[in-house]
Nucleic acid binder design. Structure first.
Lengths: 215, 215
DNA sequence: CGTCGTCTTGATCTTTCTCAACCTGTGTGG
DNA sequence: CCACACAGGTTGAGAAAGATCAAGACGACG
């Protein structure tokens, strides 16, 4: 992979995968409404999806009490269900949180597509990049709730597109309950770092936010 | 990737990467003693390593207070520092926890090696597999300390080779302090599921352990 | 045999979870 | 067009889990 290609992959979007997919995949697109599931945890992993538009959250059953814990957000330009290449069942459920435009191929077609060295490289780069960009480990030893939320907001801000997820999902990503997230946001707001509304969060004072995220 | 190749990749070891590496990489091996670092977080990502023997833990600085949080264990047969393919610096530090036998190649050589479709596939499979096999998210919403420890022990047991890591590292992986891990192990022991010594943990009653991990 | 580092155990304190009530914007049906 | 139900969000008080601090025990190693 050339240094140039590496840079292209690291860029938020359009990344190499997008380019490759655009060029190669049959344009069998499907609109999927908010709330719908793309695939379910434990289901036979038979297809791989490409998310052209919208937003999808990956959730995994927390335990047998039926609750679920979201653990990653996938935005436009992402491949979903890649575990189909190495496993027989999906590891998590993918739920649409913002109306999505998806195209998919069967595992076999994906295998075939990966005969192309360029495609294979693009996918590898994609996996390495998204894997490392995921939400950092969410546990108490990573700091207090306020610090973790501040860090998450910083990561969001640096990504450009604001994540449109509900409080419940955001809290899940951060490993806390919605109430705690709400309180943390309130603290950050009263410190003047952000502005919080029922349905929006805007960063007001970036240095201050960084400061609150720091220690 | 054929169904057969997929199965081979999913197998614990030797996986496709091992086979490929054995065949292709120049056998420039280097012994690295326990405690040494393979690479450091933030360092220029110039090489990729293959861990032939031993055990390595990946740690990431928790915050600016100097503490570090381990977030994954890599055993024999793993590739280390793959972020070199998509980034300019390493995302975490790799520290040897059991005397290791490593061989490494420069980023450029790795790029070149990846010209081989087989190699590329093996690496993709490897990344997808290890990525999904990592320790599950460690946060309170994933259950109590006892449950998380029980789950971790089950995962360990199913992997065959017992992880030889210190309590400190194990606790870090699970997102708790060593004291909490110690107490959780004591609880599991008094429930008869395991036997705990200063330097060993043996599963005694698998069904009981599963039960304690469950809800 | 003594020292050091790791592990364990106990007491206390902080944080977050839980449960409950209340608020607010949205959508529905009369 | 308005009343109403409803889901998602906020806020408060109490409980529980884990972190912290401190002391002691065990094992490795010189």
């Amino acid at each position: 992979m050339s240094s140039e290609a590496r840079k292209a992959c690291a860029a938020p979007c359009p990344c190499a995968v997008t380019v490759e997919v655009r060029r190669r995949w049959p344009s069998l697109e499907r609109h999927t409404p908010r709330g719908a599931h793309v695939y379910l945890e434990g289901e036979a992993a038979s297809r791989v999806w490409y998310l052209r538009r919208g937003c999808v959250v990956l959730v995994r059953a927390a335990s047998d009490d039926g609750r679920e814990a979201p653990h990653a957000v996938r935005r436009a330009g992402s491949l979903l269900g890649l575990e189909a290449l190495v496993r027989d069942t999906y590891l998590d459920s993918a739920r649409v949180t913002a109306d999505a435009l998806l195209c998919s191929v069967s595992r076999e077609a994906m295998d075939e597509w990966l005969q192309e060295p360029m495609a294979l490289r693009a996918v590898l780069a994609h996996v390495l990049t998204t894997g490392s960009a995921d939400v950092p480990r969410a546990c108490r030893s990573e700091g207090t709730a306020v610090e973790r939320v501040a860090r998450w907001l910083l990561a969001e801000a640096s990504q450009g597109a604001p994540t449109r997820v509900t409080r419940r999902v955001a809290a899940g990503l951060l490993g806390m309950v919605p109430e705690t997230l709400s309180r943390a946001l309130a603290r950050l707001a009263e410190a003047g770092a952000i502005e919080v509304g029922r349905s929006h969060v805007v960063v007001r004072d970036l240095p201050r936010l960084r400061e609150l995220a720091g220690g």
